[in-house]
């Protein structure tokens, strides 16, 4: 039962973080791809660099933000799943934004004019571009999910690895490993992979249903 609770916390936090990140990052990555503005290349380079943002650094930053002595201390989000969601959101955002940018760039450049000349307004034409990029977009979101469900640094620093509350699969692995329970750690690792596999199968089925 405790194991189910751990899987549930992992899934809830990572799915919420990925979803929230996707809501912000998909439009953002799309916007960066279709608009020309000064410093665009710099932005893209920064985004790609943030792929390598260490999870513990994010954990540290968010701890500093959410700590009672920090600027957002009054929200009392430290050592809560919501706080972990915030940390993972920060981790997923650059991944999804950069991959959305790449996916949008990869869409045939005739899509937008074709939609426009058939009478689409700007918003509808943009949606068509997104629609043509949807495989890439889903890959972006799945990559973001993969980044957050497998990370331990932010989860343990912001969540505190509280049993039955903020303990996730990865923090449980870290704990069991530190206790020398390597076998349990490995089993948890396999469970994490199984969870990730289920999410990917679900996404794949979603795509297959709409060719």
């Amino acid at each position: 039962m405790e194991l189910l609770g751990i899987i549930w916390v992992s899934l809830r936090v990572s799915l919420a973080a990925t979803t929230l990140a996707a809501l912000a990052s998909v439009p953002l990555g799309f916007w960066i791809a279709v608009r020309e503005f000064p410093g665009k290349r710099v932005v893209v380079v920064i985004l790609n660099t943030l792929f390598s943002l260490p999870t513990v650094v994010v954990g540290l930053l968010v701890y500093g933000l959410l700590s009672h002595s920090g600027p957002l201390g009054s929200l009392k989000l430290l050592y809560t799943p919501a706080g972990m969601t915030l940390g993972q959101w920060i981790l997923a955002t650059p991944v999804i934004t950069a991959l959305t940018y790449a996916a949008t760039k990869g869409v045939d450049e005739r899509v937008r004019p074709t939609a426009l000349t058939l009478g689409a307004d700007g918003w509808q034409a943009g949606l068509m571009v997104l629609r043509e990029a949807r495989y890439g977009l889903l890959a972006a979101v799945v990559a973001g999910f993969g980044r957050v469900i497998s990370e331990v640094g932010a989860a343990i620093m912001i969540g505190g690895n509280i049993r039955g509350y903020t303990r996730t699969i990865t923090t449980a692995i870290a704990l069991e490993t530190s206790k020398g329970e390597f076998q349990i750690g490995l089993i948890l690792g396999v469970i994490l992979l199984a969870v990730a596999l289920s999410v990917n199968l679900f996404v794949h089925a979603f795509l297959r249903a709409r060719p």
């Binding site: 919420a16 009392k76 799943p81 706080g83 949606l127």
Partner: peptide, 25 residues
């Protein structure tokens, strides 16, 4: 526009997750 539906679902899920997350908090 399957994507539109997907987007609407995402918004819905996002809100639900946000609400439950803050409820936890």
């Amino acid at each position: 526009f399957s994507l539109k539906n997907f987007y609407l679902h995402s918004v819905g899920w996002g809100l639900i997750s946000l609400l439950t997350a803050s409820a936890w908090a």
